[in-house]
Write a protein that binds this DNA or RNA. Structure first.
Lengths: 213, 213
DNA sequence: CCCACAATACCCACTAGAGGGTATTTTTCG
DNA sequence: CGAAAAATACCCTCTAGTGGGTATTGTGGG
């Protein structure tokens, strides 16, 4: 069996140290790098071979979901195992739809981590219990759409959600972007529909999770 | 010099592994435990001596700020170094007011971590640059009160902020708690004044940071 | 025993946001 | 080129939230 070269994509370098320590008992695995941002992930992939990325969803700048898409496009052979504390259905779905081979919940034990990596390297998808639970019952209690259709936000919508999450009023946003208040309202309506939330609170949580604020 | 016994209070066990790995080059430091919740911190302190706690602000259940207060009350000799990715002035202030000896920003290098622990153990407060920046200029751009007065929230106010952050309307909250809508509005007013935010968005962010939702 | 505080509840006024449309222009992409 | 998507902007209505008061009751601490 050849060595599995692992890149950890997480804002915290100390997490890479923890991972190295944990994987020391899995001789066929080697941590070959750490990237603190989505951009750094893409740059690292150009520099040398990587077999698997442990990818946090919440990355500053280009987040894990966006990075996932880029990795799929430019490096289809690299496997990605999502690795985040977030277990909400929208993030699990988004990562899987973008091509992740599994979703490991942060806080998993050393044993589960190693099991997950081995599974993914053997082309078997791996989902942590909490992530599996989300894909099965994530919509039960929340009136959310069951279809799980992944709907991306446009660039303009991302700008708007960032601003509303920063406590800006529609009026302030309109002035800042040189557009009409009505247009801002339209974008908000689209955002709330796409993300299936009831109010501003849902938008704020989503933006926070994706490190947009 | 005697050994510094360190307890790491953080939801992620792998962080404790990373810390152990990093501190292996500081021979006088020893990681003697890991606690994933505020409750676990207090229980661990009853079981054996600890010199310093590396305390995350965002802990599930009883968060770092509340735990800090309990540690001060029952174990005044134990030093606490706050350790979080949050750099907002309210969290830095809260932890320091509750008695933390320093505030280390997650994402700091191994060297800074060791420096910070040594400083704190020598009774010198330590603040990461970003945390210091917050205490000095945290209010410059945000119209927030400069006095930095720490105002605790009451239990009822915490209930309310949890619910508003969960996308509940005032009406739903009133029905759930068997109180008048006007009372809910009053609590919201108090919350917004105390936390110095402009709208629901600010309340949601605060609740999210403190792991209340 | 008082004072401070927490929790409750109401008044008024005003604004912002939610929810339903439709429609135009521009951009993007097959 | 032509279709689809994105960004723009307006209509309407209604509810929810913000912001300023005041006031009562109960409770816990000094």
């Amino acid at each position: 069996m050849s060595t599995t070269r692992i890149l950890i994509a997480d804002p915290l370098e100390i997490l890479a140290a923890g991972l190295r320590s944990w994987l020391s008992e899995a001789p066929e695995m080697e941590v070959v790098g750490h990237a603190g941002t989505g951009q750094a992930v893409l740059e690292r992939l150009e520099e040398g071979p990587v077999d698997l990325i442990l990818m946090e969803v919440s990355l500053p700048g280009r987040d894990g979901i966006d990075t996932m898409r880029e990795v799929r496009r430019h490096h289809p052979a690299v496997k990605v195992l999502a690795y985040s504390a977030l277990t909400e259905i929208e993030y699990v779905n988004s990562m899987l739809i973008e091509g992740a081979s599994g979703y490991l919940v942060k806080g998993s034990s050393k044993e589960e981590l190693i099991t997950a990596i081995r599974a993914v390297m053997n082309d078997q998808p791996y989902l942590s219990p909490a992530a599996r639970e989300s894909t099965l019952h994530g919509y039960d209690h929340t009136q959310k759409r069951m279809d799980g259709e992944y709907i991306g936000l446009t660039e303009r919508e991302r700008e708007i959600i960032r601003l509303v999450a920063q406590e800006r009023t529609n009026d302030e946003i309109a002035k800042a972007l040189f557009i009409s208040v009505d247009t801002v309202k339209t974008h908000r309506k689209h955002l709330m529909t796409k993300l299936n939330v009831r109010s501003l609170a849902g938008l704020v949580k989503y933006a926070r999770d994706r490190c947009w604020i």
